[in-house]
Design a binder for these strands. Structure first.
Lengths: 157, 157
DNA sequence: TAAATATCCATGTAATCCCATGAATGCCCG
DNA sequence: CGGGCATTCATGGGATTACATGGATATTTA
């Protein structure tokens, strides 16, 4: 498997450690993570974005499109790189979530790991539940636009 | 044959395992399933959608059009990837249905596997029976509009 | 040295593998 | 044409492994 899929909820222990779900670890293995995974506060959600090399490349790619020394580039690179932390994975497949990041996502006792294809997010489980509901409704709407007959349509009424 | 057709009912055992009907397994073989089959709650029915690589590609296709780091993309990915589970197939051709998925489809003792062409669905047998009846009536109505007599004629059950 | 961070080890639980059984199907040979 | 024989499948149970989690010990940093 080469993409992050599905959702897993794990506990944060007294030291702030969380196990990365084994399936995600497997993807990271393939993805590559020199020294650790990339993690930063989501721009538009109370969540953390994370991933391996592929994610890093994607960020680079976004910046590459903008002219050097432009305001836009400066702003974006600060927004994207400025808050990035590299989290090392310990021998048991766990990371430690620093205080700052945890605050942004309002994470305390548990973390929901949510696969988004080529990156994953970390949420406070209840906040994610709300977002999930919203997202599902949106997909319903989009389906009418996106899906030709049979696209992702299910069980046709 | 390379599409899922017909309906099969199998048991869920004490551990939550269900045999995938052999004919579907054969299709999956051809379809490809690296690591397992893709399965997610149907958007508009109390059922589960499932399939192999072909289905996975379809999901990718939906996202491919959207720009990275857009609100929209994240939202869609949550619903598309976040809700998907990758179910591994054991040596005997069985999968385990996780609690969350089972709940969505109200599946407990038995599962009806329903072929839908390039994917299949899993239903609680009685819920599916009801749905099937309804679908039949609809088809009968349509037939009057669409076809000359005998167009879609079938030999009954 | 104290606090914080990293490494290592222990444990219960849940998932995975492996083998046994039994029914049903299809095939071969009488 | 009919009766065994072999295979394929679904299903059940037991054994084994993987994984998340908690705690203890080393190691660094201020």
């Amino acid at each position: 498997m080469d993409r992050y899929v599905s959702t897993f909820v794990n506990k944060v222990d007294a030291k702030g450690r969380v196990s990365i779900p084994a399936p995600f670890r497997a993807v990271l293995e393939r993805d590559g993570y020199a020294g650790g995974i990339y993690c930063y506060p989501s721009l538009d959600a109370p969540a953390l974005d994370a991933g391996g090399e592929r994610l890093a490349k994607k960020i680079d790619g976004l910046l590459a499109g903008l002219p050097d020394y432009s305001d836009e580039r400066d702003e974006l690179s600060v927004a994207l790189y400025g808050d990035v932390q590299v989290l090392t994975i310990d021998g048991d497949g766990r990371i430690v979530l620093p205080e700052g990041l945890r605050a942004h996502a309002a994470i305390s006792g548990q973390v929901a790991f949510v696969g988004l294809g080529d990156k994953f997010q970390m949420w406070a489980p209840d906040a994610f539940e709300a977002r999930r509901r919203k997202a599902r409704e949106k997909v319903r709407d989009h389906r009418k636009l996106l899906g030709g007959p049979g696209e992702l349509k299910s069980g046709g009424d």
